[in-house]
């Protein structure tokens, strides 16, 4: 099981990377952590003419937080993200979801940008970024643009990135006070891709009224699935009935696939169960009693 022949470039700056992407167009493939791409190369399921390895573009490896939010460079290793004290403190949902990615050895190499750009339908980060209302910054020799996370993953293993574009960073807004969170995942083995995972955020006001709630599921279709909670949770103090209704909405929102690990029916069932559990926990953490 050995990869096919490819040529190799290892740019050391964003600028060089953009130039290489412009030069090779669709023949070029960015290599970041390689934890998804290299298995496909070894199995000869991917055969790019040129690998553009961005592991030496160190300017892309950073985590910066300010009052407004968190900016994560694309080359930030997943393990570095989850160990980052500010991330753990202010964006615990992100840390918790990242902990579910594979094993430590995978996270040592795997990058935040790589996970988003690969857009595996069962991956954690694309879903969590959607829940967090993140914004992705991409650039090419033609300039830079911002893509909201909700528009970023467009289909199975497909993003809004153009072949010549580089995912540079992702910005996550600060969470409002009294925001609770939860991440729930079921996988076959520890470290496997999710059969279904659910990210939840619930914001309450001082009176306990839910002012905002977000729920995103992964593993249930070609892209992460956000659930509209305006009819169920938002606008009132959360009740068990409201949570149950929201969980029903989650189940109704998904059209999951069947595969060797689980039938669609089970994934649909999990969507409801995990949504209910995640929302319940998030409400508790927001200071609500449900």
């Amino acid at each position: 099981m050995k990869p096919p022949v490819f040529d190799y470039r290892a740019p050391v700056s964003v600028e060089e990377t953009q130039q290489a992407l412009a030069e090779y167009q669709a023949d070029g493939k960015l290599l970041a952590g390689g934890q998804s791409l290299v298995p496909m190369l070894n199995m000869r399921l991917a055969r790019p003419a040129v690998l553009i390895d961005i592991n030496r573009v160190t300017e892309l490896a950073f985590v910066r937080a300010d009052d407004g939010g968190l900016t994560i460079g694309a080359l930030t290793r997943q393990q570095a993200l989850l160990e980052h004290p500010t991330v753990q403190e202010r964006w615990p949902l992100l840390a918790e979801a990242t902990r579910h990615i594979g094993h430590r050895t995978i996270r040592n190499r795997g990058t935040v940008g790589g996970s988003l750009a690969h857009a595996d339908p069962a991956a954690e980060l694309p879903a969590v970024m959607l829940a967090l209302d993140a914004v992705v910054t991409v650039s090419s020799t033609r300039g830079e643009r911002q893509i909201p996370a909700r528009d970023f993953v467009v289909d199975y293993l497909t993003t809004a990135l153009e072949p010549t574009e580089l995912l540079r960073s992702v910005w996550v807004p600060a969470l409002p006070p009294r925001t609770g969170w939860a991440f729930q995942e079921v996988s076959r083995r520890h470290g496997d891709f999710a059969l279904v995972a659910v990210a939840a955020l619930v914001t309450l006001d001082a009176a306990g009224v839910c002012t905002d709630a977000r729920l995103v599921l992964t593993g249930v279709g070609p892209t992460p699935v956000p659930v509209d909670l305006r009819q169920t949770l938002i606008g009132a103090a959360p009740s068990p009935a409201a949570v149950a209704a929201a969980a029903e909405a989650a189940q109704a929102a998904v059209d999951p696939p069947s595969d060797v690990h689980a039938p669609a029916e089970y994934r649909r069932h999990l969507a409801r169960v995990l949504a209910r559990r995640a929302l319940t926990t998030a409400i508790e953490r927001a200071g609500g009693t449900e």
């Binding site: 099981m1 390689g34 934890q35 290299v38 070894n42 199995m43 390895d53 040592n108 190499r109």
Partner: peptide, 23 residues
Amino acid sequence: EHGVCGNCTVLLDGQSVRACLMF
């Protein structure tokens, strides 16, 4: 050789990595 069994793990700059998933 596809990054699941971890039997090829080595330390790169002190961090564990799968040697089948790096060139």
